[in-house]
């Protein structure tokens, strides 16, 4: 065995293998933190999450704590953002609404990424009949205009008298139903090109099972694009949820969501005289979605599939 030629030391190539520096995610992270706007977005988003999920524990008020005597108070030291028509603290409601809106956004994203990712990989890998079925369903869903479809589904949900506390889950499912086709297409097209690459041929030559080829070889290759699309889709989901809730079709009171809080702007008197009711949730939606988009763009640049060595 000693006559096997060793590569001389000086010929060993440019490997700088040092812990996380070498890993792909380490590289992504280093590129990501160079993008100031993305980092700002990320930090703001973290703050919004902390505000929504941890904030309510520090609030002396509860969302159900109605107190009609206290109704329509302008911002004060007791109620930083004033109170609404039932005397509830707007700041506390804003935080709790954030929980709902962010959860709906994330939940819808997780669902649509799961559905779209799985179907996209299967369609791209197996092609043929599987591809036909998946893509025709996706085509049909994509030809239907999103918002009217959501309205109809929401109307059905109201007709069936879905309890208010369950509505957010239904909204998640609705949003993911119209969200997955785009993602499935994207993943399918990626997989279609990946499956023709030589390393996939090599997996054939190694005698791997399909499950292993899909999960160990194809999936890691589409994860970067999956992450970017998923991040950006959270913003879209939050917006759609807000629209639905604004129209009273998504999450309905007494459960607060940023969308149904803005609904206050519908009444002229609230719109002109009590801006503390609708400006804060509006700002919350605006900032959240902008931050998500900045983060998504930053991630896309950091995980550029055309980056060196891939």
């Amino acid at each position: 065995m000693e006559n096997i030629p060793q590569i001389p030391r000086q010929m060993e190539p440019k490997v700088e293998v040092e812990g996380s520096k070498s890993s792909l995610w380490g590289q992504v992270w280093r590129r990501f933190i160079k993008r100031k706007m993305a980092v700002v977005g990320f930090l703001f988003l973290t703050m919004i999450f902390v505000f929504s999920f941890i904030g309510p524990f520090f609030s002396p008020y509860t969302t159900m704590g109605t107190n009609p005597i206290n109704a329509h108070q302008p911002p004060s030291s007791a109620h930083w953002l004033g109170t609404d028509h039932l005397g509830r603290d707007v700041l506390t409601r804003l935080m709790l609404a954030g929980r709902i809106s962010l959860t709906v956004g994330l939940g819808a994203m997780v669902l649509s990424v799961s559905i779209g990712g799985i179907l996209g990989i299967l369609a791209g890998y197996y092609r043929g009949i599987v591809d036909q079925i998946v893509m025709r369903i996706a085509d049909v869903l994509m030809t239907l205009p999103g918002l009217p479809l959501l309205f109809i589904m929401a109307a059905i949900m109201s007709e069936w008298r879905v309890p208010a506390e369950h509505r957010m889950y239904i909204v998640m499912i609705m949003l993911s139903l119209i969200g997955w086709p785009g993602l499935a297409r994207l993943i399918r097209s990626q997989v279609l090109s990946l499956r023709e690459r030589e390393f996939m041929l090599a997996t054939d030559a190694l005698g791997l099972r399909d499950r292993r080829k899909l999960l160990n070889h194809l999936l890691p290759n589409v994860v970067p694009i999956l992450i970017v699309t998923a991040t950006l889709s959270v913003g879209g989901a939050i917006l759609s949820e807000s629209v639905l809730s604004y129209f009273g079709l998504g999450v309905v009171p007494p459960t607060a969501s940023w969308g149904n809080m803005i609904n206050a702007a519908n009444s002229l008197i609230d719109f002109t005289n009590r801006p503390w009711l609708w400006i804060p949730p509006g700002v919350a939606i605006f900032v959240t979605v902008i931050c998500i988009n900045l983060l998504g763009d930053g991630l896309r640049d950091a995980i550029d599939p055309n980056m060196k060595g891939r």
Binding site: A202, D204, G207, G309
Partner: peptide
């Protein structure tokens, strides 16, 4: 056939650069 391939009968490809999965 799967048990034979990679186990008893192995193959080396022409392009080492593209025959390995870049993300693993």
């Amino acid at each position: 056939l799967r048990r034979v391939r990679g186990n008893d009968l192995a193959m080396i490809f022409q392009e080492p650069m593209s025959s390995l999965n870049p993300v693993l």
